[in-house]
Amino acid sequence: MRNCETPAGGGDELLAQYTLNVNGKACGVTKGRVEESLLYVLRERLGMTGTKNACDQGECGSCTVLLDGMAVCSCLVLAASAVGREIVTVEGLTPPDGLNDIQQAFVDHGAVQCGFCTPGLIVAAEVLLRDRPDASTLEIKEAISGNLCRCTGYGRVISAIAGAAEARREAQGGC
């Protein structure tokens, strides 16, 4: 939102036109300013509001997305530099008809209160369970160490992620 302010001197901003690959779709960005963050472009230019904006300085993790499979704070990525890279947001992790297993585990374990931090936590948990299906509690805590939640106290978030991991392991063992 701070980005919407008219620059001092006004009218001399660099306009950019480029295409981003978001959740497997080519999304054209026109009339964007070249210094806009990926977070700003996702929300304000592309209308994808699942990714949340809180601190705009990489402190809170609410804006976590996957960039070429790596979790990053989209507020710290220049949108134009994400051209040609694979961007996945929380919308891209969500099945068309409901919730994925991690999202469902958050509901089942009561890991959501106000819900503002949840999309970032879901993305962080997704990448953890992809890389470390047997994640220990310590590894879960480290994986979400960049995601601030001011409501839940993290206990239920950790048990939700551990629960989702266990369910995946059981499902695999059953095959």
Binding site: Q57, C75, V77, A80
Partner: peptide, 20 residues
Amino acid sequence: MVEVNYSQRRPSTVISIDRI
């Protein structure tokens, strides 16, 4: 990037070196 987000810095040119 934080300075840009907070409008403390307005780059006139941006060169991406990410893909070198």
